Computed example of a mutant assay.
Amino acid sequence: MSDARADATGNVVNDGRNGTVKQIICIKWGAKFGPEFVNRLHGMIARNITPPFRLYCFTDSDEGLHPDIAVRPLPEFDYKAPERTKGKWPKSRLWGDLGDVEGVVLFLDLDVIITGNLDDFFSYGDPDDTILGLNPNTPLEKMGQTSVYRMRVGKLKPLQDIFRADPQAAADKFKYEQRFVTRNAPGGVKFWPKGWLAHFRMHCVPNFPLNYFREARIPQGTKIVIFPGNLNPPDAILGRWDEADEHRAPLDHLRAAFDGRRRESFGKHIRHYLRPVSWVEKLWRE
């Protein structure tokens, strides 16, 4: 018996199960991420999924995007985004109506690295579940992480209504959009099984002093490596902690901790060393 659900008219709605289309969505606005991030995401998906699938990119510019990517305009955002709070609040555009994209969708951040098969992200749990990653920074809080999450389109629309009433107040209270989603999603949220997602800085990079001698690794069983913060795949390939950093040989990086060339505290400087990561360069391609 198929798990695909039928709507009120009897039409089958995509949920990515039993041969229905696996729908993946991403969002790109502004200039922080170029089209190569979307194109490489599409390439990684294609190599790690059982078809049929389709990647939808909601964006303000389709310049340079691969023709196989389904481009859609950014959904209407008829409220002012918070200006003094951390978090990627423009993602709230995706909580409501997505035009012709209906059914179950898997959202992926543009800066993830796919390291395993994605099929389980569609077959896990119930199609009506809202499923997030578990944020490793706040294990006792059980806050979700929205680099990789699954939802039924429209289920999170009530969150838009709450947010629209006073975006800055909501952002001030919850600090991050992922905490807002975790606390307010209708019916609550569930989490991906432990080990499916790996946080690059926390789970892949060796602890000091091994980070000076060993390359970051992919933990066994990982399907997707996420890159929260300022360290992105291009930085990992070059062996730098963020765009403002520069890769140095191990001894020179340690010397910089003492001779005034460090940009942060001594403790952070010596921990924030990264050797160039060969598997990121190998996997992050079209």
Rank of each mutant, 00 (worst) to 15 (best):
D3K: 07
A4V: 12
R5G: 00
D7Y: 03
A8G: 01
T9S: 11
G10Y: 06
V13I: 11
G16C: 09
R17P: 05
R17M: 08
T20K: 03
I27N: 02
G30A: 01
A31P: 00
G34V: 06
G34I: 02
P35T: 01
P35D: 01
E36M: 06
F37Y: 13
A46S: 14
I49F: 05
T50Y: 01
P52D: 00
R54M: 11
L55D: 04
Y56A: 13
T59P: 07
D60L: 12
D60G: 11
E63P: 01
L65H: 04
D68T: 12
I69H: 04
I69V: 15
L74R: 10
K80F: 05
K80H: 10
P82A: 06
E83C: 06
S92E: 07
D97K: 00
V105N: 05
L106P: 09
G116H: 13
F122E: 04
D128T: 14
T130D: 07
G133N: 09
G133L: 08
L140H: 12
K142C: 13
T146N: 14
S147E: 06
Y149R: 02
M151G: 00
R152A: 02
V153T: 05
L156V: 02
R164Y: 11
A165T: 13
A165S: 14
D166R: 06
K173C: 08
Y176F: 14
Q178S: 10
R179L: 12
F180L: 10
V181P: 05
R183L: 10
G188Y: 02
V189M: 09
P193M: 11
P193T: 14
A198H: 06
H203L: 04
C204A: 06
C204G: 05
P206T: 03
F213L: 14
A216Y: 04
I218R: 02
P219K: 02
G221N: 01
F227H: 04
G229H: 03
G229C: 02
N230Q: 11
L231M: 15
I237S: 08
E243R: 15
D245A: 12
E246H: 13
R248G: 00
R248H: 09
P250M: 00
P250C: 02
P250Y: 04
L251F: 05
L254M: 10
R255E: 00
A257I: 09
R261Q: 14
R261T: 12
R271S: 15
R271D: 15
H272E: 14
L274R: 13
P276E: 03
P276R: 08
S278R: 15
L283R: 15
L283D: 08
W284T: 09
W284Q: 08
W284D: 11
R285W: 00
E286K: 04
